[in-house]
Write a protein that binds this DNA or RNA. Structure first.
Lengths: 169, 169
DNA sequence: CAGCGTCAGTTTCTCAAGGGAACTCAGTCG
DNA sequence: CGACTGAGTTCCCTTGAGAAACTGACGCTG
């Protein structure tokens, strides 16, 4: 597999990395998610080259993660705003941030999230959608799904076979 | 901010992207997390150049996300295994995969996760660590945390000010 | 012993992407 | 008119990616 094949791979990690698999895109997304929606504001906030920012924003628009909404006409100028897809991707950024909070700046989190629904400060937790319990390492075992491509990923298939005994009662 | 400053930024997304902010590292991590632990097996599975794989594995070891465990001595050969830090990062990969499942291969998920604790197939959900409810877009509002660097991120500060009214009752 | 195969890199060379800085264009304003 | 703003675009140099070959340290076999 080459980098340019990521978007066609039978692998949803690779397909997602086709969108966010570079150093800057997650940070651009983070800014847009926080409401920093103008080109110059993002550029100044991140200190990213205008060329790279242009490319990244265009890619995000192409992937329908971000949309351009005109805020003036003469000349036409855009706010960059998350789509519904982009909002789901922003939740992934929350998980990324949470990892960084815990391991890379412990006790010095730059941002704290307040959950309006329960009215408490919180952090994101990766949970089981079925039972609601925290998904801890080792507590979830993968098995083949409907789109698993055996010929494309033989080593993954073998790895799945190796953990299959854990799936049996 | 330049790419090389990511690891020092007062931003836990940037610090995490210092580790995984390239196309291949998340996929290498995914493989290691699945138990594909030998150099040649990862290389063949991903079709990545040996040079890039060497660099990526070394970076993961340097970041203490992955450790080398010798499985033979003559010559010395290593299995690559997730550390505890790496296992937490693998949970982030789960979130990445879940986004891809939903938006990029809907109904064709290559892998299904089985939660051993509740004995059901599941998928990861980003939840509120406090109340356990799903964190949905728009339901969490950020505010400054202890490590927030106002001078480094003025636009973020302004964005936080803009959403501050939502924090008040 | 020599030859071959395996595994985990390392090296070389070419092409692609990143990044800094300057430039461009389409406005508005004084 | 000139200056400024905002959103790009272009140019040039540096760095990284990728293909392919090479290397070294073994073990095994005839």
């Amino acid at each position: 597999m080459r980098r340019e094949d990521f978007g066609e791979a039978s692998c949803t990690v690779a397909r997602t990395m086709d969108i966010i698999g570079d150093p800057w895109t997650p940070l651009v997304l983070r800014d847009v998610a926080l409401g920093i929606s103008r080109f110059d504001a993002v550029q100044a906030n991140l200190g990213i080259s205008r060329k790279v920012l242009t490319q990244r924003l265009q890619a995000l628009v192409d992937h329908e993660v971000v949309e351009r909404i005109a805020y003036q006409e003469r000349p036409v100028r855009y706010d960059y705003v998350l789509t519904a897809k982009g909002q789901d991707l922003a939740l992934v950024l929350l998980a990324i941030q949470s990892f960084g909070d815990k391991w890379l700046m412990p006790g010095q989190e730059p941002l704290i999230w307040h959950h309006l629904t329960c009215d408490h400060d919180t952090s994101p937790q990766i949970s089981c959608r079925h039972c609601g319990g925290e998904l801890r390492p080792g507590e979830a075992v993968p098995r083949r799904g409907p789109g698993f491509a055996e010929d494309e990923w033989p080593a993954v298939g073998a790895a799945l076979d190796a953990v299959a005994p854990f799936l049996e009662r």
